[in-house]
Design a protein around this nucleic acid. Sequence first.
DNA 1: TCTGGGGTCCTATAGCCT
DNA 2: TCTGAGGCTATAGGACCC
Length: 344
Amino acid sequence: MDMDAFFVEVELLKRPELRGEPVIVGGSGDPTQRGVVSTASYEARQYGIGSGMPLRTAFARCPEAVFLPVDYSSYSAASRRIKAILSKFSPIMEDVGIDEAYLDISDLQETSIAIAQSLKQEIKSRTGLTCSVGIAPNKLLAKIASDLDKPDGLTVITQDDIETRIWPLPARRLWGVGPKSAEKLTKIGVEKIGELAGLPKETLIACCGRSQGNYLYQAARGIDERPLVTHRKPKSIGRETTFQRDVSDRPTLEAKLIGLTKDVVSRMRSRGLRAKTITVKLRYSDFDTHTHAISLTTPTNRFATIQETALFCLSRFELTKKVRLIGVRVDGLAQSPQDKAVES
DNA sequence: TCTGGGGTCCTATAGCCT
DNA sequence: TCTGAGGCTATAGGACCC
């Protein structure tokens, strides 16, 4: 299940008079500031505007569009209501970000189509939002199916449909094939998923590496044995921010880093976690991006320690270029001892 | 004037150990 | 004692996803 133009649709619930207009949700909502498009309404997409595009570019393409700031907390609230509805249909649910989920309905009595229809109906009546559903034997195919008939779609794909409906699609439509891999595949003459399926595994491994090569070999045949992951432990927590204007002085970077670190530590604590490794990231004005990391001997949630470590990581950077982004991230997460006791 | 912010996973390399 | 293979961990970078 994949929500349609999710951020935009949630905004339209608050501002119904905007329906039918090109609406763009992204950044601070000010297209003269730095930021990118999170979601564009279907009207805005007609101007060639899509996710990830700089807001300034979107504005150049469609100055009459309505630009709105990202209001993450209201999307989270809507997401929670939707996930609650979904989980009533099947307890075997995998969350995929804020607006997607996989449901395992293998063991249910009703037909898949009937389940999908009532699920769509219930989401629509309870939240006013539409979604698109893909029904298939595995996650890979379900994901592609959900995308074939957007918005408000319902698509069934079976093993027998692979040659006729999957093979004609561009390889880029496979999960895990982004711009770089698509480019590599083009170089060996592959545009469509069907062409991928025509190549020996060794060729794909030579092209894309062991892990992705094996994956592509299976994926092109519609094979995907990955189970649904119903419970996930966080592996890392981070905060990063892009300055409105590039920064060249250390004190400004240090002050911002301390603020970001406070935020990270408070999120760690609220989840009862300690971290072993602290990584600081800088992106320079030319988009060159570097990190420095330090691992502690023992995981901690102590602010002073994490801040000191982050500042030390920052001190290892040479500031020969202006900085556009700074971030801090912690990983090697472990449950805090007292929470462990509570848990067991 | 380009290019967010939250993440996960993979790969390459270097150092250390057996 | 020397050399090399292989495993493991830490680090850095990069691709990708929503």
